[in-house]
Design a protein around this nucleic acid. Sequence first.
RNA 1: GCGCCUCUAGCUCAAUUGGCAGAGCAUCGGACUCUUAAUCCGCAGGUUCCGGGUUCAAGUCCCGGGGGGCGUACCA
Length: 525
Amino acid sequence: MSENEQSHETASPEAAADEDAADEGNSSGMIAPRDFDIPYRFEVTAKSNDLHAKYGDLEDGAETGDIVSVAGRLMLKRGQGKIVFGVLQDGGGRVQIFAQAKTTPDFEGFSKLMLGDWIGVTGEVIKTRRGELSIRPNEWTVLAATRRAFPDKWHGISDPDTRYRQRYVDMWVSEESNAALRNRSRIMSLTRRWLEDREFMEVETPIFHGIASGAMARPFTTHHNALDMDLFLRIAPELYLKRLTVGGFEKVFEIGRVFRNEGISTRHNPEFTMLELYWAYADYNDVMELVEQLVSYLAMEILGTTTITYDERELNLAAPWKRATMTDLIAEHTGLELSVDMDRDELAAIAEEQGVDVKNHYGTGKLILEIYEKTTEAQIWGPVFVTDYPKEVSPLSRDHRSEPGLTERFEAIVAGRELCNAFSELTDPDEQLARFQGQEADREAGDAEAMGMDLDYIRALEYGLPPTGGLGIGMDRLVMLLTGSTTIRDVVLFPTLRPEQGDISPVASQLGADDSGDTAPGSQT
RNA sequence: GCGCCUCUAGCUCAAUUGGCAGAGCAUCGGACUCUUAAUCCGCAGGUUCCGGGUUCAAGUCCCGGGGGGCGUACCA
């Protein structure tokens, strides 16, 4: 690139003499428009963290003669008369800009930059006498002039509402937010590569489903006009992925958004990211090994260790993880020896004693699950593979090879929370049909989350599904674990919130009052 | 859904029993050639979330509404 493209002796910002705008600057946090020539591109040759890595050992006062171009946001500024110290933050970190009056073009303009302005700086890598690695600008240019005051340079934003609504600011002023969100991206990327290295193939299945099935949850409903039909946003990709196994894709996975119309909490966002994986010829034991290896690999890559601290407690993610059956864990935590073969009413009485709200249609399997969730699950720090779930609560899992009434299903519990759900898949169409019918009965008994009957899926099974191990991992929760986040909103870029009311943008308010109300973009079709 | 908590300047926070709405940072003006949240001097900045009520007087108390947080229920 030529010098002309990125460098112009920056025009002094002619603050608009508009008095309204000036008033705004004080009362609303708005900054009057400033007049800069903004280039169309800027050639960056160095990132701050690379500079620290390369030049960290320079002696105080050293000059390198090396010219670099950096770009980012001006986060701090310290005027010192004929020197201005700026701190530029880019995608990697921060580096100081050492601007002297005698060497800096338009020094006056530089000293008037606002915190939050984007700038591009070209200059020599030096270390100041006081030992701070710096760029001494030969050229600089504004890349974006902020129209809004940045948050407190020390405290940042603490109001959670503002952090989630204005993530684009939170990301700059909260290092923890920034790191967690970047690590989320790395975890997704590492997971994909790890699976691809094991010959799993990534696929994309429909998000619009005619039937809400594959999990137990309330769906979101929408409508397609041309087909004049209601559709559900998927609650799980499971049944489509197993159709692909029927179709001969032996190792498939999907990482995608699923939608559940349920409560919002520190562990729940209405849309969240699920990894599902199907592995022909494998069983749930194979899947357990895969999970513990994947998670310990990710911990090593992200944190450099498998011994992590979460919620102030230590957690060892190194493989292999403990395996224990649900009933053994209940016995361990409560002393209760339970079995799906017990008398239903006897079990119901025990469940009531444990505080379970027993419904009439609950069988022994559902009662055991309820007792487990009430007494045991949250107590498990883990990681533990909880195995052998009752058949009654596992409509897609294959019967246990040796334990009647149970299935070959497991969940991994880490820090008292479900991290994944997996099983040896049910492959028999007659049995699957019977399980769906059981779900229909539950629905009629008032269970709004019962699984929908999917006859095309039954037809697919009629063509033959080989033995298959399947897995679903809540990726948001995995990211929480590996980033130390105790709320899912800290690992979701834009968590679901109620829409904001009122005057959000003074810039938009300049539009005619008639235009600003209910005419949302896209509302006309 | 329900319960508890919370909302004050652009940001972070004060304001005693109900008694003149304040500070730091940012902004604006000034000083300063090695700062590190620079420092120093000065100016300005408010629908105390919204709407009612009680009171001589409401940021504060009461009622209703809204946003958010936490817990709980459902769930991953």
